[in-house]
């Protein structure tokens, strides 16, 4: 089989990596050091906006990347698109898990403050958990098929269906139901409760975390290509 070409990691890549790390360092400093308007119940946890919410933005952007590569894999059948779809889904799942766990911790000391509750099956959290199980099944599905071509095709079809559920499970449905999460039916939305100073950190944080995810994803693709080239001789 033909050798796969890994992405070029020259000086341009080194510069981009350095920019991402510097950018993220500034975001973390801004997240902790800038004064924010005081909000009842939330107090300083309002700063979690810079960390918890970008997890889901990052998850969704990696899902989008994964879906695109799955569609391309169905069209072309090339090995590299299957690898890229798999690795971006993996990064998406990791950020989804971090989003869910950070959400549980945040909810514990705001929504459920003063109680002994950690998990109350809030629709927002339940939908997110279901979403992660859907992606868990994707990786399990991959392990059950031995033939490369067959696995690539079936996984791509499943991945497209999984990606199609994301907007509904993470966006549409939780907004229709009674949830404590901001943005749900009757709750204040982002635009109403977010001060300009917080937006100045939040948007760079979203960009920064997506960039970090891209670094992790790219590393994985390089390793996977190396593995393909070494084991397919």
């Amino acid at each position: 089989m033909d050798k796969l070409t890994p992405p070029v990691s020259g000086s341009r890549y080194s510069v981009i990596r350095a920019i991402i790390i510097t950018w993220m360092t500034l975001v973390i400093l801004g997240a902790f050091l800038l004064d924010i308007p005081r909000m009842n119940i939330l107090e300083h946890t309002a700063r979690n906006l810079y960390f918890h919410v970008p997890m889901w933005f990052t998850m969704m952007s990696m899902v989008l990347v994964s879906g695109i590569y799955s569609a391309r894999h169905l069209a072309s059948g090339s090995r590299i698109t299957d690898i890229r779809a798999r690795e971006s889904a993996r990064v998406a799942a990791v950020f989804g898990v971090m989003g869910l766990i950070t959400g549980i911790l945040w909810a514990k000391f705001t929504w459920y403050s003063g109680t002994s509750v950690w998990w109350n099956s809030d629709p927002r959290q339940s939908m997110a958990a279901i979403q992660l199980l859907i992606y868990g099944a994707y990786f399990f599905l991959r392990t059950t098929i031995d033939d490369n071509e067959k696995r690539g095709r079936i996984a791509a079809v499943y991945n497209l269906i999984a990606a199609a559920t994301v907007p509904f499970l993470l966006y549409v449905l939780p907004r229709q139901m009674e949830s404590l999460h901001p943005g749900a039916d009757g709750n204040p939305a982002f635009s109403e409760i977010t001060a300009p100073i917080m937006r100045a950190v939040f948007y760079p944080a979203v960009i920064g975390f997506i960039a970090i995810a891209w670094l992790l994803y790219r590393q994985r693709v390089r390793v996977a290509i190396l593995k393909e080239n070494l084991t397919s001789d």
Partner: peptide, 18 residues
Amino acid sequence: DDKILVVLGVVLIIWFGI
């Protein structure tokens, strides 16, 4: 301390995830 440690917890979760 106005729940600042919750933010620390969240940052640590992400750090360990990465």
